[in-house]
Computed example of a mutant assay.
Amino acid sequence: MSRIAYVNGAYVPHSDAMVHVEDRGYQFADGVYEVCEIRHGVIVDLTRHLDRLGRSLGELRIDWPMSRAALAQVIRRVARMNHVKNGMFYLQVTRGVAKRDHVFPKAGTRPSIVVTAKSTDPKIIAAKNAKGLKAITVPDNRWERVDIKTVGLLPNAMARQAAKEQGAQEAIYVDRDGNVTEGAATNVWMVDADGALVTRPAEHGILRGITRTTLQDVAARLGVEIRERKFSVEEMKASREVFITAATSICFPIVEIDGHAVGNGHPGSMSQKIREAFFDIAEKTSI
């Protein structure tokens, strides 16, 4: 059965899903998005994802395309129509269609919305967790408001491509002072010499990841200390363990950075412990 997408009020075959040539998301990256995991037939942390969507829309002064309750129903229906048991949904809202002009269109311009869903193979995720990932470091060349989850991801795409070309799976951004910010599509964590989890404070310099937030709840349940502070590339490379978090992968261990082995070069125990406890604590919404 072909995939189904929701586009501006209609459920259409994925191959026919289209937006207008003058949609501001297409011409100006004037829009926001969310990606959320579907696991064993339930949506993970939907409330927090919709909370963040509302914040992103508010920061860019874009109206909700529909009520929050209606949007949740659309998301669930798209997941059901695509028979997703394990996978993800993608949601994008832009300022809408208007004559090309840098200033905002007139009041009342209807936002555009797209929702898609697809299945993924849990075995691939498990294999990555068992083996661990490699990462490279790159200068952070993004705009300052990366705390807003916008569709303007060209620097992220370029960073991920650089990682791929060097045989790695993630690129870790580094600020002008030599401190780690976050990954191209992830938040970055390390385990320090005291066994505490360390991650950069969620200010304007990084995105406040939903998985990052739920992981804090997990750590509290496990009795693991979290220290939110800046840390250098050198400290990260010398740490006991490094892992990255994202909605569609929870946490992946990083076993090598810039060709340098992290710890003993194998996935560490902290990421495994977090991963095993995560879904007992995360919110689960039935499709």
Rank of each mutant, 00 (worst) to 15 (best):
A135Y: 12
W64I: 05
V188G: 10
K128R: 13
S67T: 13
I62H: 04
A72V: 13
A107C: 13
R80M: 08
R80Q: 13
T150D: 00
V114K: 00
N86V: 06
M158W: 08
R76C: 10
P122D: 04
A72H: 15
W143N: 12
G132T: 09
Y90A: 03
V115K: 05
N179W: 04
A162L: 00
F104I: 12
I172K: 05
R68A: 08
G96E: 02
N187T: 03
F104T: 14
R100C: 09
T94A: 03
I113Q: 00
K106W: 14
A126Y: 02
A171S: 09
I148S: 10
G132H: 05
K99G: 11
T94D: 01
A126D: 04
E165S: 00
R77D: 15
D63N: 13
G178A: 06
L133G: 12
A135N: 08
M88S: 06
A185M: 04
R68G: 04
R76Q: 14
P111N: 09
V97A: 13
F89K: 14
I125H: 13
I125A: 11
G132I: 05
G87I: 06
N129F: 03
N129I: 05
V74K: 11
A162F: 01
Q73S: 14
R110E: 03
I148G: 06
V174R: 05
P139N: 01
D175R: 06
N141L: 08
V114S: 00
D63V: 07
T186Y: 02
V151N: 02
R145K: 10
I124S: 07
N82I: 10
D175C: 12
D63C: 09
A98F: 13
L153A: 02
R100P: 08
Q166I: 02
T150K: 00
R142A: 11
R160L: 10
V97K: 12
A72F: 14
V151A: 01
D140S: 09
V151H: 01
F104A: 15
A130I: 02
R110C: 00
